[in-house]
Design a protein around this nucleic acid. Structure first.
Lengths: 151, 151
DNA sequence: CACCTCTCTGACCATCTTTGACTATTATTT
DNA sequence: AAATAATAGTCAAAGATGGTCAGAGAGGTG
């Protein structure tokens, strides 16, 4: 946890812990952590994705901003359907892990369950060409989502 | 006990004696013991395997690490290893269900966990020729058995 | 000595992070 | 309306780690 990305991520999440939404100025954050502005984009693109449950908006030009919100979906059924739609028929290993973590946070899965599922979705478990792997992973994840509904 | 592998192994295990988990930087350890970085991989691959009761994770790139955890060896590991042997690389849907029921009875899985796994091993989840399906199912089940060890 | 197994090394690969030049968009000023 | 200023976005290259693998080296055994 000495790389800037993790530090900035922690900083933003800590704020989001108290507030549901934050609005930052890219340049300001970059200055505060002494990094280039595009670093902030990297943090957002890798740590505040839809898979992880965040919604990001931004505006350029004078008075520009980046706004980050934690997505709250009250009805778990809806969350499962949303996830299903997001996934479609293509899913990377990283995205799968992010979704599983989200499901654990939403208490739709236990940590143990997520670990087992994750192990089945990792590339070592899907011995096939990369493209097929992602399709297969998506297919299995869809099954998981449907199964959770009946648990 | 004069070769570097043993020395590094002892060093790491001594730390693991006090802590359940350690996180190292490959390069740092290599420097400390004056060896090439890949030596660390050798140590890990030969001395910190799942069979020996260790679980290892890592991350590359800036802020990368290697994390080693000691997992508790249970008697039930024998059962898991036996099942693994029985299954080999071919598993029917019915047999899979039977194994899962057994695992639930042995309290190695919860009912919910078994249901999720079963849903992933059913034929609808494995869209491929029947023969491949059975091989794939066996492969996934093997993953499950290994994963259970570190739950 | 011949042979086998375990260890060690280094070249090459894969993945994640950081940086900066260039681009796109919006607001403000002329 | 056009020019300028103020922001944010994109992308590819460089940097920072860890992983793999094949071959060389070392130690033991018949």
């Amino acid at each position: 946890m000495q790389n800037i990305t993790d530090i900035i991520e922690a900083y933003l999440k800590q704020i989001l812990h108290d507030q549901k939404k934050i609005e930052i100025k890219r340049q300001e954050i970059a200055e505060r952590f002494d990094c280039v502005p595009s670093q902030i984009n990297y943090v957002i693109n890798t740590r505040f994705t839809i898979e992880k449950g965040y919604f990001v908006e931004s505006k350029r030009g004078g008075g520009g901003y980046i706004r980050i919100q934690k997505i709250v979906i009250l009805d778990s059924h809806d969350l499962l359907d949303e996830m299903s739609r997001w996934i479609g028929n293509d899913l990377t290993q990283q995205a799968a892990e992010d979704y599983l973590i989200r499901l654990v946070n939403e208490q739709l899965l236990t940590r143990r369950e997520a670990i087992v599922i994750q192990s089945l979705l990792q590339k070592e478990s899907l011995p096939m060409a990369l493209e097929d792997q992602r399709r297969m992973r998506a297919h299995l994840m869809q099954t998981v989502l449907q199964t959770i509904k009946r648990l």
